[in-house]
Amino acid sequence: METQDTLTFTSNGIYCSAGDFYIDPWRPVPRALITHGHADHARFGHRSYLSTDIAAPVIKHRLGDINIETISYGATVQVGSAKVSFHPAGHVPGSAQIRVEVGGEVWVVSGDYKTVYDGLSDAFEPLKCHSFISECTFGLPAFQWKEQSVVFEAINAWWQQNANDRRVSILGAYGLGKAQRLLCGLDRSIGPVLTHSTVEGTNRVMRAQGIALPPTQQVMHDTDRKAQSGAMIIAPPSALESSWARGFGDISTAFSSGWMGLRGVRRRRAADRGFVISDHADWEGLNAAILETGAENIYVTHGYTDTFSRWLIEKGYNAKVVPTQFGDAEEEQGNDV
């Protein structure tokens, strides 16, 4: 079936002419629907924003004084002649897939998603649609995640070992989503958990909106950093090689990201450990999610789009690569937000 152009790909991003709005646009637009608060999705400068009620506090925390309306998961709002609803994407708290229906034609924009439940974000909701715009950050069969509990065990074992050796553990994690997910998986009997101010900033916002997070203690400028042996510190990845990290004395460092599944990346990042844990779907997850939509048309974006679309075409889908601001859809490795 030839589809209508419910959504089109413009130089500003994904556009719906029936409702005159954009989804996660990368240039300033009058009306922007935002899947979640990560910087590559929620940008400055739009005249009005629409996001889920759960995602909004963090978006405001990042973008400051913006004109934002909210909507809860599953609720439908009429925008022009388009029916729009937001559904859990399982990526980070409040993250959404956006469903757009115009004249019976249904499109879903996945945003970033993962299909496994992380215990913190609302679980990914499979949606039926005609056309599915899917991310494929980890769209290669080399990316297959282990169960979360197995990864948490490995992280706790590393922490325990460091605590036995009177070392400080510093775990690098993105401040929005990954950091909080890890916090929930730490074995608190091992030692105290400290946070970098960037991470704690997001924690504070989430706690204020009623998301339950285990207690943490922010590293302040007057914290005695030499007296923290045995502690776990959650910090943004960029802080791992800083003088801030070295100030803790004998440390062991680790990154947590899907890219850590690749030995070359693990070894070249100058950290002691790399834990393979991502808020994106792995190869199995992407394929399962796409199958469940029942969609015939798959548009892929973010990641190994050329390879992944070819794979989908061989599987019988009508798959295309979403043109992005990069001229083509390759993304640099290391982007895991």
């Binding site: 290669l140 069969p141 080399a142 690749l262 030995r263 070359g264 190994y304 390879t307 070819r310 794979w311 490795q333």
Partner: peptide, 16 residues
């Protein structure tokens, strides 16, 4: 071909 594409990213055949 998909194995080859993966190899190009992983950079090591044994690991791929």
């Amino acid at each position: 071909w998909l194995l080859e594409d993966s190899y190009a990213v992983v950079g090591d055949l044994a690991e791929t």
